[in-house]
Write a protein that binds this DNA or RNA. Structure first.
Lengths: 210, 210
DNA sequence: TCGTAAGTTGACCCTAGGGTAAAGATACTG
DNA sequence: CAGTATCTTTACCCTAGGGTCAACTTACGA
């Protein structure tokens, strides 16, 4: 690879990182190229597709953040605290970083490494749900599929709130958590839980691409 | 107005009603014209804008449905039942009719009559929230602004779920309601409630047009 | 029945985005 | 320092949507 190409790739990575974090993973590629100061043709030459660019620029960063939250949550002794910490922190991550929100929402199934990060994060969620349910502090009818859907809806709401009341999402999370304690459950739920495949389908259509 | 024009307007109203209910208020105007069997130029001639068409086709229908839900809710004796009934029924309306969902979400501020219907619906929500709070069954820190945001997020989720698990939204509503009972409230909320203006801004950017 | 006002059409323009490839520029190598 | 392989640019194509208007067609009244 020629030196100028390497330099351009670096400029593009930097611009992409900025814009993905500011505006989410669906920012126009031409705008990334513009910010990097190269033509969009160069972007296509060097990366080929949005997915490839995402994988290079976002994946490791998102993985770090998600892993850290999961690790910290799992390190807490109290099962309810662990679960609540995970939910709150993950929502906070989504609210402050649109790129991470898009990762959690599992769009861009073309970005392989990214999807595996997304999968790992879901595994952590599953573990925390199981743990809290087993401890009898989380209502037994709540599944990790419910949690994923919650995250998906939260991501959209948090992004809409960002300019107006960047912390208001915390209210919704508080209401939800209070409804998820074992002692809050009132009646059998009026619908069945979703399978993982169903969750994936739904998350796909949740933010565009319907 | 000439007879053929009146006929075309009628065909367009019928097609619009169908498509709005199937796919929401942002369905392409050219597609409405196509289904009506006229050219899109005619649609612009006869209605001028999407907002005008919406006002003629959707407003009364949505008003009827929303009023009915509010009326039935307000007729219930138990304040919690009334509140819960309203939330559930309104969410059901959103899940089964994308047009109503868009009305509740308050997009299309250009459609005047529609916005007044939206406003009336919000007033009913406010009344039910007050009533339930006054009766001590609803947690006192929950405001009608929270309810409107909830509806907005719900509308998006329900639409994404429609093809996969059309009833799954009921789980989320159940979790929420269980968290909204007065006895579920655990701690002071971590953020302030939104003003009406803030809610309007947020709802505007919640579904596109950000 | 025929002139004309009223209505309709479809080709056209615009934006915003994704994507491609021929032609031009430039870094490296012998 | 010249030649070539590599890279970049730019002009272009595509889709999907909103919107306009000159030219055609048609309903209807005198």
């Amino acid at each position: 690879m020629r030196a100028d190409a390497r330099r351009n790739a670096e400029k593009l990575r930097a611009a992409a990182a900025e814009l993905f974090q500011e505006r989410g993973l669906d920012v126009p590629l031409k705008e990334i190229a513009r910010r990097a100061g190269v033509s969009h043709g160069t972007l296509y030459n060097l990366f080929g597709s949005r997915e490839a660019l995402i994988d290079e620029v976002v994946t490791d960063l998102a993985a770090d953040r998600l892993d850290e939250v999961a690790r910290e949550a799992l390190s807490l002794d109290d099962a309810w605290e662990a679960f609540a910490y995970y939910v709150e922190k993950l929502c906070e991550l989504q609210a402050t970083d649109p790129a991470v929100a898009d990762v959690v929402s599992g769009r861009y199934p073309g970005a392989e490494r990214l999807m595996s990060v997304c999968g790992q994060s879901m595994d952590a969620a599953e573990r925390l749900v199981e743990q809290a349910r087993a401890a009898g502090v989380l209502r037994p009818d709540f599944t990790s599929a419910d949690l994923v859907l919650t995250f998906g809806a939260h991501a959209l709401l948090a992004r809409a709130l960002a300019d107006t009341a960047p912390d208001a999402w915390r209210r919704g999370v508080a209401f939800l958590l209070d409804g998820l304690r074992a002692e809050s459950a009132q009646q059998p739920l009026p619908a069945d839980a979703l399978t993982q495949q169903q969750v994936q389908d739904v998350m796909g259509s949740l933010a565009g691409k319907g």
